[in-house]
Write a protein that binds this DNA or RNA. Structure first.
Lengths: 116, 116
DNA sequence: GCTTTATATGAGCATATAGTTATATACGAG
DNA sequence: CTCGTATATAACTATATGCTCATATAAAGC
């Protein structure tokens, strides 16, 4: 029973589907979580490493990591006392690339207004 | 002075850039706004049409349209009493495609757990 | 000018969420 | 077993945001 949905399908999307998609974007709509993802672009890291790299508190970092893991964006493995997280969803890379691109355009559009 | 940024650049992203990117995702992290975008995938529409298509109140729809327009995701033109909105940022299509794809995977992954 | 229509926006309320403090739990070393 | 370390989580607070109601503003017709 594979689950199939597409935003550009002509059929209407259910409220449930929209909520799920929105939730997906919401997970990424948070600077701290983006900071964590960015740190993990370089490869798997422990919670402690991420705490140091992002400058956040251990509790806060842990909470955000949980959110990302529950969304299956991160994979998690434990080794003794340490827990390691890594990017588990490759589409994250493409997503961020797209958003940065359209953000650049948006900013350039704003810059044009000032240039006039 | 073109503005250039990329999520996968090895240089650290400023807090400002992360906030802007997060804000970008936040605009999409809302079912009503997704519903509006979905309706506009079919082409330009007036506010009133969007109110009917989405079943939202005029006030709420108008407010969300403003958010999307301010983010340069929608373009806006006025004709007499009516205002028409249309998708202005083509990367929206690709964005939603990517998110739907990874959401499917995430749901299928969950379905696997139940299948066992 | 007056009335109607279409849209944007102010103000208020309810809910969600980020960050913090404190602490529970698991793991490892002595 | 005790103590220290690493991480997750409960509880609380402050802030942001979605939605609604009311209304301001613009445009069109008579």
């Amino acid at each position: 029973m594979p689950f199939k949905l597409a935003m550009k399908a002509p059929r209407p999307l259910s409220d449930e589907a929209l909520a799920l998609i929105a939730r997906r974007f919401a997970v990424l709509a948070e600077p701290t979580r983006l900071r964590l993802l960015h740190a993990l672009f370089a490869g798997e890291k422990s919670v402690n490493e991420l705490v140091e790299l992002t400058g956040g508190t251990q509790a806060n970092v842990s909470r955000h990591l949980q959110t990302l893991a529950h969304a299956h964006m991160l994979g998690r493995r434990k080794e003794g006392l340490q827990v390691f997280y890594a990017i588990a969803d490759p589409s994250i890379f493409k997503l961020c690339e797209l958003v940065c691109g359209s953000l650049e355009k948006s900013l350039n559009k704003q810059a044009e207004v000032f240039a006039q």
